[in-house]
Design a protein around this nucleic acid. Structure first.
Lengths: 244, 244
DNA sequence: AGACCGCCTTGAACCCGTTCGACGCCGTCC
DNA sequence: GGACGGCGTCGAACGGGTTCAAGGCGGTCT
């Protein structure tokens, strides 16, 4: 155990072990913090459990809080005036949700599964950022990562064929799982066909047809609902690259 | 004039006036700096002029430098294995180009016009960020802005019809011009139809047809090559919103 | 059990944007 | 001047993905 543990308050003892297993500690905002700083962050933040389909926040809500997804899956969506929605991203354990410089959140954040989230008031975050410059640096790094991923997604949606988009989506799930330290061929995929379609700029029928095609070619399996097994990762990534 | 000017070195006197008119000072990284800090930044950075079609850097180059576009226009592109390119964004006077946490640049940066750029070695930037926390904050803000714009672009490419995408593109030009403090109905548009098409996930023919359609409807004019006049901004933004 | 509902799958027809081809315009290079 | 190449425009045919429609499967509620 960490040598700092001995001097922690009982309160901290209760909260920190939770933090140690949090995705944020592994790949997210809290990764660069030492134990003392982690204590402070964790004592200022509020952990809550929420059920699937809860809204963490809505597009247009005042952006007064920042969230970390401790466990679970979420989707971020923007609504178009004509009613169609675009999924701008999915979020996994450890990811930060809702950091923006805008006065209001620019998208909806909806949980796809029962989840645990960690909540911080905006003012508290700003104070922490001032106190621990390493946190601000970390925010910037995460933001740049996010920007790169979104640009990648732009390429996917803008230039790839339907099947190549679905293949690229599967690869992004593999990558997200790897980043969380679980390199595994069987992946959680809690999003519906419609969610995936809205992410890829396709219809749910096309997504369904593509996944069926992959299954028939023996590239993937779906042992149970909302779980994919990547059988032939190479074939999928070749298709995503357009080498078809 | 600024009271700090009196104590400046002759060298600073030569460089700072340039900075004061730089786009970065108005809308970019240097915006929050006081005169003393601006002196330091400007003395560490190298200004150069480059001609149209120069590459600022290429995808895969070691990301050792950060650039600010002082004057001019640039496009950022990613190349797909099959040879197609996706324009991931355009950059205008004042914008930062090439900041990444990755070891290499994730896209090409090519100038569309003769431009002036301001160059900073990565190590110098890191030192400045440590010295002036306000700069790090500013980087984060710019990154979040950029992320929001890219997500907006994702919606455009993913869910809008061809004409709506072109309309949205025109609006983004208006917005970029406004941000640089030049709210004007006649805009520079140095990119070719092919560039626009690659940005919007369309072909150049479709872009050409859409712009022709807008012209025939009297929504825009193109008085000279590479310049658009927004005659009926309302009609364009209604189309972009999908209210057609 | 039966009815209902959300989600997924599959088929067939259609349509929007692409592809392919041709041409015009303009600037540059022999 | 003439040839060439980059860029933009336009028409006709094609095709990938959408739209529309029907049906299946697995839950949950009554």
């Amino acid at each position: 155990m960490n040598p700092f543990d001995a001097v922690r308050s009982p309160e901290a003892l209760a909260t920190v072990p939770v933090c140690d297993r949090c995705g944020s500690r592994i790949a997210g905002l809290c990764q660069p913090l030492d134990s003392a700083a982690l204590d402070e962050v964790s004592s200022e933040s509020q952990q809550t459990s929420l059920t699937a389909h809860s809204m963490v926040f809505r597009e247009g809500d005042p952006a007064g809080r920042i969230f970390t997804l401790v466990e679970g899956f979420a989707k971020l969506t923007r609504l178009l005036p004509d009613g169609k929605q675009q999924v701008v991203g999915f979020r996994f354990a450890g990811d930060v949700i809702g950091y923006t410089t805008l006065p209001t959140y620019p998208f909806d954040a909806e949980l796809l599964t029962d989840s645990r989230i960690c909540r911080l008031e905006r003012g508290q975050l700003d104070a922490l950022l001032r106190r621990y410059p390493v946190l601000e640096r970390r925010m910037l790094d995460l933001c740049v990562q996010e920007l790169t991923a979104t640009q990648e997604q732009l390429v996917t949606v803008g230039r790839r064929s339907a099947e190549a988009r679905v293949a690229a989506f599967l690869l992004s799930l593999v990558e997200a799982s790897r980043r969380r330290g679980k390199p595994c061929t069987v992946l959680e995929m809690p999003m519906t066909r419609a969610d995936i379609a809205d992410f890829l700029g396709l219809t749910l029928e096309t997504v369904s047809r593509s996944l069926t095609a992959f299954r028939k070619r023996g590239w993937i399996r779906e042992p149970v609902h909302h779980r994919v097994e990547m059988v032939n990762l190479r074939a999928v990534s070749d298709l995503a690259e357009g080498l078809s």
